[in-house]
């Protein structure tokens, strides 16, 4: 039983780590702000869910698990809201998402 829990939590933690890395690489490599935002939200959602679930399995039934659950709930509420606020302020400042015809432009100045 213990080994099963260990394996499950190891799988969750590793998958979470992989998600974090993918999101991190995406934030660095994606071509414009809105696509980068998409990559960042991967780490905030899947990454956070998997990692915290993995830790929760290790913590077992304790106060720590309750706290971890609260942390996960707050993260899942706040980070999409922060992303929304950020996207709104970018749109407000007149930043256009990069669309098909913009792909030809090679330099980043176009993003403004």
């Amino acid at each position: 039983m213990n080994i099963a829990i260990d394996i499950a939590s190891w799988v969750l933690l590793t998958l979470g780590g992989v998600n974090l890395l993918i999101g991190g690489i995406g934030v660095l490599r994606m071509p414009d702000f809105y696509t980068r935002m998409h990559a960042a939200s991967l780490t905030d959602s899947m990454g956070a869910i998997l990692v915290i679930l993995g830790i929760m399995l290790q913590a077992g039934l304790s106060l720590a698990t309750v706290k971890l659950g609260a942390i996960l709930a707050f993260l899942l509420l706040t980070s999409p809201t922060a992303a929304n606020a950020l996207a709104v302020s970018a749109l407000l400042a007149g930043m256009k998402p990069r669309t098909g015809d913009a792909v030809q432009r090679t330099n980043h100045e176009a993003d403004a």
């Binding site: 707050f74 509420l77 706040t78 809201t81 929304n84 606020a85 709104v88």
Partner: peptide, 18 residues
């Protein structure tokens, strides 16, 4: 303030007590 921004406002109101 941010009264016109619905999502931040609703969520903020939800979280302030916490």
């Amino acid at each position: 303030g941010l009264r016109h921004y619905l999502i931040p406002r609703i969520l903020g109101r939800l979280l302030i007590p916490f």
